[in-house]
Simulated assay, not measured.
Amino acid sequence: MPRLHAADVGCWVVKTARPPDAVVPGWRPGEEREVARCLRPSYRLGLMRPGQPVLLWLSGRDRPGVHATGVLAGEVGSDGDGPVVVVRFTLLPAHVPRADLLADPAVRDAEVLRMPAGSNPSSLTPPQYAAVLAHLP
């Protein structure tokens, strides 16, 4: 896989195997919450900057797809076990299903769709991010 550069990143994608209400108990659609997400150590962490857009991706068989949109709320840090970033997410009123994105030629080749079990963070190119935004409820 080719190395990413800052201009290649339209947004970051952080994944979870737990539904949003398990990530943040009581989280309601439209509410903004700060969520700490663990990341895999890689050169990509050096490309992450506060204010960059981020999507929360639910992996697995139950409602896979984009469940929240947000921005990086700070620099990548550490929790003692590894890299962590805080994201200010807003829960969507309805998720954007993985199947809808697979059907969209502008985004179907996105890393998160080709390798859904890949590590955090993943990314979308600027055109892929624009395509996902067009699917938001």
Results as ranks from 00 to 15, higher is better:
residue 97 P to K: 12
residue 75 E to H: 06
residue 12 W to A: 03
residue 137 P to S: 11
residue 136 L to M: 12
residue 16 T to P: 04
residue 133 L to E: 12
residue 26 G to E: 13
residue 130 A to Q: 11
residue 58 L to S: 01
residue 23 V to I: 15
residue 93 P to F: 10
residue 26 G to P: 09
residue 9 V to W: 01
residue 2 P to T: 02
residue 107 V to I: 09
residue 22 A to P: 07
residue 85 V to R: 02
residue 112 V to S: 00
residue 95 H to E: 13
residue 135 H to L: 08
residue 104 D to M: 07
residue 85 V to Y: 04
residue 15 K to H: 00
residue 82 G to L: 14
residue 85 V to D: 01
residue 122 S to N: 05
residue 10 G to R: 01
residue 124 L to R: 02
residue 47 L to D: 05
residue 107 V to Q: 05
residue 39 L to A: 06
residue 124 L to A: 04
residue 124 L to F: 03
residue 23 V to T: 10
residue 76 V to E: 02
residue 23 V to G: 05
residue 12 W to D: 02
residue 18 R to A: 11
residue 114 R to C: 02
residue 110 A to Y: 03
residue 117 A to F: 01
residue 105 P to H: 10
residue 130 A to H: 05
residue 93 P to W: 08
residue 112 V to T: 00
residue 13 V to H: 00
residue 125 T to E: 13
residue 81 D to M: 14
residue 121 P to S: 08
residue 20 P to D: 14
residue 82 G to M: 11
residue 134 A to F: 10
residue 6 A to I: 07
residue 99 A to N: 11
residue 127 P to Q: 10
residue 109 D to S: 13
residue 120 N to L: 04
residue 127 P to E: 09
residue 93 P to R: 13
residue 2 P to W: 01
residue 3 R to D: 05
residue 120 N to K: 04
residue 94 A to W: 12
residue 54 V to E: 02
residue 104 D to P: 02
residue 45 L to Y: 10
